[in-house]
Computed example of a mutant assay.
Amino acid sequence: MKNRPITTLFMLMSVDGKISSGSNDVLDTDKDWHTISGVKEGIHQYYEIEQTTDLWSLNTGRVMEKIGVNSKTNTPKKIPCNFVIIDNKPHLSKKGIDYLCKWVNSLYIVTHNDEHPALDMKRDNLNIIMQNEFDLIGLLEILKNKYQVERLTIQSGGMMNCEFLRNKLFDYVDVVVAPLLVGGKDTPTLIDGESINTQNQLNELGVLKLKNCKMLEDSYIRLTYQLVS
């Protein structure tokens, strides 16, 4: 039995694997794809499926900053999900952390930055996981053994997704594919990070077995895979 949660990468992407509209933070899937005719009509299906994913979700402070949690002023509707946010720079501000605490059931900030703003905050549902250095395998072991996390949905950016891939930490991949081509070599994709350079590194690739392919409405599809190696 694995000494970590069962993980599922759950993302919305274009047909060419892009998870954003472009290469800068001004462009964003959540904001932009709702405005494109032929895409906006079916995008609600991704968010409806998202509501059925695991009650534990892992993301990064970089992604949270991009979706604007640091500047939100509304009081969010409480959701039952627990967020694990890896944030070493940090990207989250105290305002953003406070918003997340109001939004989710429990918030877990993972950092090795001893000046992270969360360290000065006291919230009943705020937890800090300190690391001496970034250790993804160690983090998953902590989530499993200390917090009894059995299943974990991954919704982070392409760089962090690559860390999961190269360390063989994905069990399933569940993607909703929008009927859209984005293009651009600098536009974030489902898996970014460093490329392999030799045939000796081919074992770092993730081989998938298709578990389900479902046609959704408005030319969307949902693909579910299991990692086999």
Rank of each mutant, 00 (worst) to 15 (best):
V182M: 06
L58M: 15
G183L: 06
V15N: 04
S219M: 11
F83H: 12
L119K: 13
G183V: 03
S106I: 01
I6L: 13
L208D: 06
P80V: 01
P179C: 05
R4G: 03
V173T: 05
R166K: 15
L58I: 13
P76T: 01
P90M: 07
N127V: 05
I49T: 09
I43D: 10
S20K: 00
K78H: 06
N132T: 14
E115M: 14
R4W: 01
W33A: 01
N59F: 08
S21K: 13
D192Q: 05
K122A: 15
G96I: 04
T111P: 10
I142E: 10
D28W: 13
D30K: 08
K77V: 10
Y47A: 01
M159V: 14
P90F: 04
T198H: 09
S14Q: 05
T29G: 08
Q201W: 04
Q199S: 14
I137C: 12
N127A: 04
C101H: 05
L58E: 02
G17W: 02
F164V: 04
N74A: 09
T111H: 09
G184F: 06
I221Q: 09
I128D: 03
S37P: 06
N145Q: 15
K77N: 04
M11G: 04
Y225R: 08
V177K: 03
L107Q: 10
N74V: 07
Y225T: 07
D98W: 00
L205E: 06
V39Y: 06
I109Q: 03
T35E: 15
N127T: 12
S20W: 01
I86Q: 02
Y47F: 13
N70Y: 04
Y220C: 09
H112R: 11
L143I: 02
I43N: 10
R166E: 15
N24L: 02
L9V: 03
M64E: 11
N167P: 00
V177D: 07
V84S: 01
S71G: 06
T53K: 11
G183M: 09
